[in-house]
Design a protein around this nucleic acid. Structure first.
Length: 263
DNA sequence: ATGGTTGTGGAACAA
């Protein structure tokens, strides 16, 4: 029986923030890192930097300009599955199999634009549709799975700095929370964040760049999540978020989520 | 206060 340390991090450009990844690896020494918003085409991925840090196994799903996900690992990864749950060609998912047979899914769910209305803002509908397709996929899952990434929804009142002020803000609207709940129920997904840090304790993973001082007012949201299949609940050994990373040099607007699990 | 910042790639878009 061995324990692996996983990190999930929306890095907002893997190339410009390699120094942050090096800092994370020095501090935490994770076995596997799931990155979202790598913002790089596969041919330009900084392989050498990861090779130098001991991440010999790298599975990429990138595109020019936007989006993009990657899994880098010190343990072998097999398979290389990509789901286009938005049905528009954007690079937002990659799935692999770990040596124990466990599946690992890295997902970057669309933010959904600014207006929480399907008619007025097609991006919002695309976000809900992405969730619906994930729900159908979840219903068919028959292998223990750990799924992590930027889900772009903060479901609980204690997942946002002000439940009342965010009720009509994309990421915390009731229709999004309902849609996320249907995905969770479709497989019995365990929310590892709230398993280990129960509500109503404050728990955020993202703070906007659009504030001079992110700590002022602490206007955070829990947009990033780690979910596991029901049978993996008892295998979770530790989970936390690395809040100081939001103050590192040229930070991402998201912080890393760190999970230790027996595999 | 209906703004504000960041990255890609070299204008507009996504977040």
């Amino acid at each position: 029986m061995s324990t692996l340390k996983f990190v999930s991090w929306n890095i907002n450009s893997v190339r410009i923030r390699l120094h942050l990844i090096e800092q994370l690896v020095m501090a935490e020494d994770p076995d596997i890192i799931c990155l979202q918003e790598t913002k790089v085409r596969d041919s330009q991925f900084p392989h050498e930097a990861f090779e130098g840090m001991g991440y010999k196994y790298r599975i990429l799903n990138g595109q020019p300009m936007h989006h993009g996900v990657a899994i880098v690992s010190r343990v072998p990864l097999t398979e290389d599955r990509r789901h286009d749950w938005q049905d528009n060609g954007e690079a937002r998912h990659i799935g692999v199999r770990l040596p124990s047979g466990l599946l690992l899914e890295n997902v970057y769910i669309p933010a959904g634009g600014d207006v929480p209305d399907r008619e007025e803002n097609p991006k919002f509908g695309q976000k809900l549709d992405f969730y619906e397709r994930m729900t159908k996929w979840s219903e068919t899952l028959d292998t223990p799975t750990i799924m992590m990434g930027d889900f772009n929804i903060a479901p609980l009142e204690s997942d946002v700095w002000s439940h009342k002020q965010l009720l009509k803000v994309v990421s915390h609207t009731p229709i999004e929370v309902d849609t996320m709940k249907r995905l969770q129920d479709a497989h019995g997904w365990v929310d590892v964040g709230r398993l280990m840090i129960p509500a109503p304790e404050r728990l955020y993973t993202w703070w906007s760049y659009r504030a001079k001082d992110w700590t002022k007012g602490d206007r955070g949201r829990r947009l990033d999540h780690v979910w596991v299949s029901p049978e993996l609940r008892s295998k979770i050994r530790a989970h936390r978020v690395l809040e100081p990373a939001r103050s590192w040099e040229k930070p991402s607007d998201h912080i890393p989520l760190i999970t230790e699990m027996e595999v």
